[in-house]
Amino acid sequence: MDANNSARPPPPPVHPAIQPLSYLLGTWRGQGEGGFPTINSFSYGEELLFSHSGKPVIAYSQRTWKLSSGEPMHAESGYWRPKPDGTIEVVIAQSTGLVEVQKGTYNAEEKLVKLQSELVGNASKVTEISRVFELVNGELSYVVQMATNLNSLQPHLKALLKKI
């Protein structure tokens, strides 16, 4: 059979381990704001993609761009591994070379995920990162806090995204 004529297989069923977070699956797009004591505040456009392959893991990718020009800004990707006990493990590789290993919890009823860095690797200044994702009135909101060798944990990014 010619590869160009082959039908794409149907999407696999959602693995039971990721069912509690299946509301995240799909593409989310919106705008965010960022800042930190050592940088100027900024706004950005953003797209998040949560997908699955039928395995007990969610693939995650994110990209941002300047609202004025569409010029790419930041990108990252990784994997979310929810556990039946309500805990979750997340690994994220950023386009800057920074790598995060995060652990946290999820609440399927409240549609809330809280993550805290266990390890921030390949970072010259960043020492800690926390992320909170919450579904509010059908929109995905998140807040990222960051600590550096000069500043304690404080707000860095926040965004509100709609499923497209």
Rank of each mutant, 00 (worst) to 15 (best):
D2C: 12
D2F: 03
N4S: 14
N5Y: 02
S6R: 12
A7D: 01
R8G: 00
P10R: 06
P11H: 11
P12N: 05
P13A: 05
H15Y: 06
H15R: 11
Q19S: 15
S22W: 02
Y23H: 15
L25A: 10
G26M: 09
T27H: 09
G30H: 08
G32L: 10
G35K: 02
T38G: 03
N40W: 09
S41Y: 08
S43M: 12
E46T: 12
P56V: 05
A59S: 15
A59N: 08
A59P: 06
S61N: 10
W65S: 05
S69D: 10
S69A: 05
S77T: 15
R81L: 13
D85R: 00
G86K: 06
G86W: 03
T87Y: 07
E89Q: 10
I92C: 11
T96L: 06
V99R: 15
V101A: 14
V101T: 06
Y106G: 12
E109T: 02
K111R: 14
K114A: 07
L115M: 09
L115R: 03
Q116K: 08
E118C: 03
L119F: 02
V126F: 07
V126H: 09
T127M: 01
E128F: 01
E128T: 02
I129F: 05
S130E: 11
V132T: 13
F133H: 11
N137V: 09
N137D: 00
N137W: 00
V144A: 09
N149L: 04
L153T: 00
L153Y: 00
Q154D: 00
A159I: 02
A159N: 02
L160P: 00
L161F: 07
I164S: 13
